[in-house]
Design a protein around this nucleic acid. Structure first.
Ligand SMILES: [Mn+2]
Ligand SMILES: [Mn+2]
Ligand SMILES: [Mn+2]
Ligand SMILES: [Mn+2]
Lengths: 220, 220
DNA sequence: ATATATTTTTAGGTTAGCCTAAATTTTTTA
DNA sequence: TAAAAAATTTAGGCTAACCTAAAAATATAT
């Protein structure tokens, strides 16, 4: 049988909270992420377990089964492909596409996804630098570093964001920090860890620790 | 408040069944079109009436209010624009897009629709020849004639279809009858009203009355 | 103008996905 | 290790969108 909109969202969120190591996800964490109450989450977990999509033992937290992981990755693939479409083809800003993609990711039809993928030229990353799973369900997270790990004098490439909130993305836009930008750390303030950086060899600006914590970068 | 997926479908179907003259639509007709039972339709009609989207007096059938008409036309606009996208950009056949568009038509976001419209070059017709409402909600049905009204010797342009079933559209594909094709009626059989027609000045083929009844054409 | 047939509505129920409040289990602290 | 705190589950309810069966209204036929 088909999975509902709501079930797909649970699986996607379990995948995200579970992290690369497939750690157990708590009922409360899911309640928080789904904007529901813990009791509602318990209801849904029983259902997902009955369908064989999650491993669930009462009070023990949940992880995805192989089958649940597959569904989650398909949803993520659709979400990210639609985001590419919205930005590359329709001209949306990277700060505007998430909510629309939240809806589009639940449109069924395998052939639609594959045709969309081809139309977009088989992109490997979405507008936020997140990797797009391939048609077979392979999803490889590149191991970027977080900006806070970069030392004074280093030059890095801006590769992605951890915070996807429109307000953060708009802040980056105003600072000229876009995907692929070269960031050279000139100075790090001892007191608050704010940094003075040079963007693309041009203007210098200050970024707060809060910003650094949410920037994914790559050396060289 | 927002209208649900289901409510939008009811409004769209009422619009279709109501026709150009805005005639009253019966409970049973809606049950048929929505694949539900009459009792379920009655439930929904009460709800739509409470929201001011339809005129409804018990046992009297329903019509759309101004507000309901607006919603219906927005859904139709989205449906037809997405169909254009699927055919023109993703390479689907005109027989494959209806079901996917049934889902996409419920994606919210005004700005998405307008950007999609611009991306597609503000098309006036969908892949089946149906007119696309403009951004203001104006929908003008061109007055095509039905193939059965064409006389022997006349040359007409193929402009649209009444039946949108994949099997019918595939039959037209196999016959070489596409949107914009020139159809010249060479002979009409008295007995079963089947016709012998020439397509684009080339090959001659027979079309049954059933086919003629579902072809929209234009003189000259 | 009745009687019969058809259409529509009402009555009462179900399921998915949510809720609050209360009970239970697990974890933390003393 | 026992008490307190936190997390989780259970119990009981709600709403949207459906259902079947029965009642009521309307339309049709004699
Ligand atoms: Mn997103
Ligand atoms: Mn993204
Ligand atoms: Mn269609
Ligand atoms: Mn169409």
């Amino acid at each position: 049988m088909q999975n509902s909109f709501t079930e797909e969202n649970y699986l996607k969120i379990i995948h995200a909270l579970s992290g690369r190591d497939g750690a157990e996800v708590s009922t409360n964490a899911l309640a928080e992420s789904t904007s529901t109450r813990a009791a509602s989450v318990t209801d849904m977990l029983r259902k997902l377990a009955d369908k064989g999509l999650i491993h669930y033992k009462k009070y023990q937290g949940v992880t995805l089964t192989e089958s649940g992981e597959k569904v989650a990755i398909k949803v993520i693939r659709k979400h990210r492909l639609w985001e590419v479409f919205l930005v590359e083809k329709l001209g949306f800003g990277w700060d505007e596409v998430h909510d629309i993609a939240e809806e589009l990711e639940h449109i069924p039809s395998e052939v639609l996804v594959e045709k969309l993928d081809a139309f977009l030229g088989h992109p490997k990353f979405d507008p936020h630098g997140d990797p797009i799973p391939d048609a077979k369900g392979n999803l490889t997270e590149p191991d970027y570093l977080i900006m806070t790990d970069v030392q004074v004098g280093e030059k890095v490439l801006m590769m992605g964001v951890l915070d996807h909130a429109p307000s953060f993305l708009q802040h980056l836009d105003r600072s000229g920090i876009t995907l692929g930008a070269v960031i050279e750390v000139q100075e790090i303030n001892e007191y608050d860890k704010s940094a003075s950086v040079r963007i693309n060899g041009g203007q210098t600006l200050f970024i707060s620790l809060e910003v650094s914590k949410n920037l994914l970068v790559q050396r060289r």
